[in-house]
Amino acid sequence: MNKSELVKAMAEQSQSSQKVSKLALDAILYQLTKALSEGEKVYLPQFGTFELRYCLPKQGRNPKTGEVIDIEGYNQPSLKFSANMKNQINSAE
Score class of each variant (00 low, 15 high):
87 N>M: 12
36 L>F: 08
73 G>M: 11
41 K>S: 13
16 S>C: 15
10 M>R: 00
81 F>L: 15
14 S>R: 11
22 K>Q: 10
90 N>L: 03
77 P>N: 05
70 D>R: 09
43 Y>K: 15
1 M>Q: 10
12 E>F: 08
10 M>I: 15
38 E>P: 00
66 G>M: 08
78 S>R: 11
21 S>A: 15
74 Y>N: 05
1 M>V: 14
48 G>D: 01
3 K>S: 00
49 T>E: 06
18 Q>E: 15
56 L>T: 10
91 S>W: 02
81 F>C: 13
47 F>L: 13
20 V>D: 11
51 E>T: 02
44 L>D: 00
90 N>E: 14
57 P>G: 03
45 P>F: 04
8 K>S: 14
4 S>T: 08
77 P>F: 00
61 R>M: 05
59 Q>F: 15
82 S>C: 02
89 I>V: 15
5 E>P: 06
30 Y>K: 01
3 K>V: 04
75 N>M: 12
38 E>L: 07
71 I>H: 01
77 P>T: 02
64 K>G: 04
46 Q>M: 08
10 M>K: 04
25 L>C: 08
58 K>M: 04
87 N>H: 06
75 N>Q: 13
3 K>N: 03
38 E>M: 10
54 Y>T: 12
83 A>Q: 14
10 M>V: 15
6 L>P: 10
86 K>V: 13
87 N>Q: 14
37 S>D: 10
41 K>Q: 11
78 S>A: 09
78 S>H: 04
36 L>E: 11
25 L>Q: 09
29 L>Y: 04
76 Q>V: 04
69 I>E: 01
69 I>Y: 05
26 D>S: 11
68 V>Q: 12
39 G>L: 01
12 E>D: 12
38 E>S: 02
2 N>L: 13
92 A>H: 07
72 E>M: 05
57 P>E: 09
16 S>N: 08
40 E>W: 01
1 M>C: 09
75 N>H: 13
88 Q>W: 05
64 K>E: 02
45 P>Q: 13
26 D>F: 02
2 N>V: 14
53 R>K: 13
87 N>G: 08
7 V>K: 00
63 P>Y: 10
46 Q>W: 04
